[in-house]
């Protein structure tokens, strides 16, 4: 049974159809990459899943429950966490305090106490390798560390699905390898489903188990990474150049 299902989802901004009748399903523990050219509707699709945008038409179901109209805080508490391309940390707080917010508020019915939240936050920071930076203000972390901090904040709430929006952008090769390893470890250790919008094709080929290609708000094709990348329509529409550069 699919953990997440998008059924004929549309999102229109005025006359522009950013997402146009998309059907997507993600299974338990799957790493699903969503790729496509700029303006294909990938980030909008993630925002629809986490509640930052509401579909114009269609339905979104998570773990059998309808979440189409659910606000972001409710979606998060139901078990979907998101990490965005631009880190959205709280600059006046330490790394530990940032992650503790995720542990405390990120799960409905958990009723965690402050001490327990801080303990979970510490464990999450250790998992992503930031244990020794726990008392640093987040402004003192570099971009790569800030993204890991956001991953820690996401997993601290114990979600079942992690939505990642271009979290590999702007990283050097070493950082890219570390990010791929951490995301794989998150999936393996917590059996978390990962839906991941990405432009860095090298990372997609290395990590994704299934790929959905979007173009002009519709699905061009989907399947195993190697198959999708060879698909003539994909090569023609978008990926040919980038694949050659990857």
């Amino acid at each position: 049974m699919a953990l997440l299902e998008l059924d004929q989802v549309h999102k229109h901004f005025g006359g522009l159809a950013a997402v146009n009748g998309v059907n997507v399903r993600a299974d338990d523990g799957e790493i699903l990459a969503i790729v496509g050219p700029n303006g294909a509707g990938k980030s909008t699709l993630l925002k629809l899943i986490v509640g930052l945008e509401t579909p114009t038409r269609g339905a979104i179901r998570f773990a059998g429950q309808e979440i189409t109209q659910a606000p972001p805080h409710r979606v998060r508490q139901m078990g979907i966490a998101m990490v965005q391309q631009t880190p959205r940390h709280f600059a006046s707080m330490t790394a530990l305090e940032n992650v503790a917010l995720g542990a405390l508020f990120g799960r409905a019915g958990a009723h965690r106490q402050e001490e327990q939240a801080l303990e979970l936050a510490g464990e999450a920071l250790s998992f992503v390798g930031l244990a020794d930076r726990r008392h640093d203000l987040v402004g003192h972390l570099n971009l790569h560390e800030q993204r890991f901090l956001e991953l820690a904040r996401a997993i601290a709430g114990g979600p079942r699905l992690l939505a990642l929006d271009e979290v590999m952008a702007g990283l050097n090769d070493t950082e890219l390898e570390a990010s791929i390893a951490i995301i794989r470890a998150i999936r393996d250790q917590f059996n978390m489903t990962i839906i991941w919008v990405e432009h860095v094709m090298k990372a997609v080929m290395s990590l994704a188990e299934r790929v959905v290609v979007l173009d002009f708000g519709t699905i061009l094709t989907e399947g195993l990474p190697a198959e999708v990348m060879r698909h003539p329509a994909v090569v023609k529409a978008y990926l040919g150049q980038e694949m050659n550069h990857a």
Binding site: G51, H73, R76, Q84, F90, S92, M93, L104
Partner: peptide, 21 residues
């Protein structure tokens, strides 16, 4: 944590919502 939750909303409302606040 409640005080920090209030601060998080002042700093970045969308970010706070994504944390579950």
């Amino acid at each position: 944590s409640l005080g920090r939750a209030v601060r998080s909303v002042i700093e970045d409302q969308e970010g706070a919502r994504l944390v579950g606040i």
